[in-house]
Measured scan of single mutants.
Amino acid sequence: MDTYKLILNGKTLKGETTTEAVDAATAEKVFKHAANEHGVHGHWTYDPETKTFTVTE
């Protein structure tokens, strides 16, 4: 398992979190669910070198 990071750049919610996942696709599902639960919808990017997802509203 690897550690993946999410950076939230929402209009009303900003922050960072991490998750352990077997691959980037699994981490993305976890992060998108969490972002949706917090009402953050926007443009997603992924940097494979740093294993970091970013969502920007």
Score class of each variant (00 low, 15 high):
1 M>D: 06
1 M>K: 13
1 M>L: 14
1 M>R: 10
2 D>G: 09
2 D>I: 13
2 D>P: 07
2 D>F: 14
2 D>Y: 13
3 T>I: 13
3 T>N: 05
3 T>Y: 06
3 T>L: 11
4 Y>G: 01
4 Y>S: 01
4 Y>R: 00
4 Y>Q: 01
4 Y>E: 01
5 K>W: 08
5 K>L: 07
5 K>G: 03
5 K>V: 10
6 L>M: 07
6 L>S: 01
6 L>I: 04
6 L>E: 02
6 L>D: 02
7 I>M: 05
7 I>V: 10
7 I>Q: 04
7 I>C: 06
7 I>L: 06
7 I>Y: 06
7 I>G: 01
8 L>C: 09
8 L>Y: 13
8 L>A: 04
8 L>N: 02
9 N>I: 15
9 N>S: 08
9 N>H: 10
10 G>I: 09
10 G>W: 06
11 K>C: 14
11 K>H: 14
11 K>D: 10
11 K>N: 14
11 K>R: 11
11 K>P: 11
11 K>L: 15
12 T>A: 10
12 T>W: 15
12 T>N: 14
12 T>G: 10
13 L>T: 13
13 L>P: 04
13 L>R: 04
14 K>S: 11
14 K>N: 09
14 K>A: 08
14 K>Y: 14
14 K>F: 12
14 K>H: 11
15 G>S: 12
15 G>E: 11
15 G>Y: 15
15 G>T: 14
16 E>S: 09
16 E>C: 12
16 E>Q: 08
16 E>Y: 12
16 E>M: 06
16 E>L: 05
17 T>I: 15
17 T>Y: 15
18 T>C: 10
18 T>N: 06
18 T>E: 08
18 T>V: 09
19 T>C: 12
19 T>F: 12
19 T>H: 08
20 E>Q: 14
20 E>W: 13
20 E>G: 05
20 E>S: 11
20 E>Y: 12
20 E>L: 14
21 A>Y: 02
21 A>N: 03
21 A>M: 02
22 V>S: 11
22 V>G: 09
22 V>N: 10
22 V>Y: 13
22 V>C: 09
23 D>W: 03
23 D>P: 00
24 A>F: 13
24 A>T: 06
24 A>I: 08
24 A>H: 09
25 A>F: 10
25 A>V: 11
25 A>Q: 12
25 A>L: 10
25 A>G: 08
25 A>I: 11
25 A>N: 09
26 T>L: 05
26 T>D: 10
26 T>A: 15
26 T>Y: 08
26 T>F: 07
26 T>W: 08
26 T>R: 05
27 A>L: 01
27 A>Y: 00
27 A>R: 00
27 A>I: 01
28 E>V: 05
28 E>G: 06
28 E>D: 04
28 E>W: 15
28 E>I: 07
30 V>N: 07
30 V>I: 15
30 V>Y: 14
30 V>H: 11
30 V>T: 10
30 V>D: 05
31 F>H: 01
31 F>R: 00
31 F>N: 00
31 F>A: 01
31 F>L: 06
31 F>K: 00
32 K>Y: 08
32 K>M: 11
32 K>S: 05
32 K>N: 05
32 K>T: 06
32 K>P: 00
33 H>R: 12
33 H>P: 03
33 H>Y: 09
33 H>D: 14
33 H>A: 14
33 H>I: 14
33 H>N: 11
34 A>K: 13
34 A>R: 10
34 A>S: 09
34 A>Y: 15
34 A>P: 02
34 A>M: 15
34 A>T: 14
34 A>W: 15
34 A>E: 10
35 A>M: 11
35 A>N: 03
35 A>R: 01
35 A>Y: 05
35 A>K: 01
35 A>V: 10
35 A>T: 06
35 A>F: 05
36 N>F: 13
36 N>E: 14
36 N>D: 12
36 N>C: 10
36 N>G: 10
37 E>C: 11
37 E>N: 10
37 E>I: 12
37 E>R: 10
37 E>G: 08
38 H>V: 15
38 H>P: 02
38 H>I: 14
39 G>D: 06
39 G>S: 06
40 V>C: 04
40 V>G: 02
40 V>L: 10
40 V>W: 07
41 H>W: 10
41 H>T: 11
41 H>V: 13
41 H>I: 13
41 H>N: 11
41 H>R: 10
41 H>P: 03
42 G>A: 03
42 G>I: 02
42 G>E: 01
43 H>R: 11
43 H>L: 13
44 W>V: 02
44 W>L: 03
44 W>S: 01
44 W>G: 00
44 W>I: 03
44 W>R: 00
44 W>C: 02
44 W>T: 01
44 W>Q: 00
44 W>Y: 02
45 T>N: 09
45 T>D: 12
45 T>P: 00
45 T>E: 12
45 T>A: 10
45 T>W: 07
46 Y>I: 01
46 Y>G: 00
47 D>A: 06
47 D>F: 05
47 D>G: 02
48 P>R: 07
48 P>E: 11
48 P>A: 13
48 P>I: 08
48 P>Q: 08
48 P>M: 07
48 P>G: 06
49 E>N: 11
49 E>R: 09
49 E>L: 12
50 T>R: 07
50 T>S: 10
50 T>G: 05
50 T>I: 06
51 K>V: 02
51 K>A: 03
51 K>G: 03
51 K>T: 03
51 K>E: 01
52 T>M: 03
52 T>G: 01
52 T>W: 02
53 F>R: 00
53 F>I: 01
53 F>E: 00
53 F>P: 00
54 T>Q: 06
54 T>V: 08
55 V>Y: 03
55 V>Q: 01
55 V>A: 03
55 V>G: 00
55 V>E: 01
55 V>L: 09
55 V>C: 06
55 V>T: 02
55 V>P: 01
55 V>K: 01
55 V>F: 05
56 T>K: 05
56 T>S: 08
56 T>H: 08
56 T>V: 08
56 T>F: 07
56 T>I: 08
57 E>S: 05
57 E>I: 06
57 E>V: 06
57 E>A: 06
57 E>H: 05
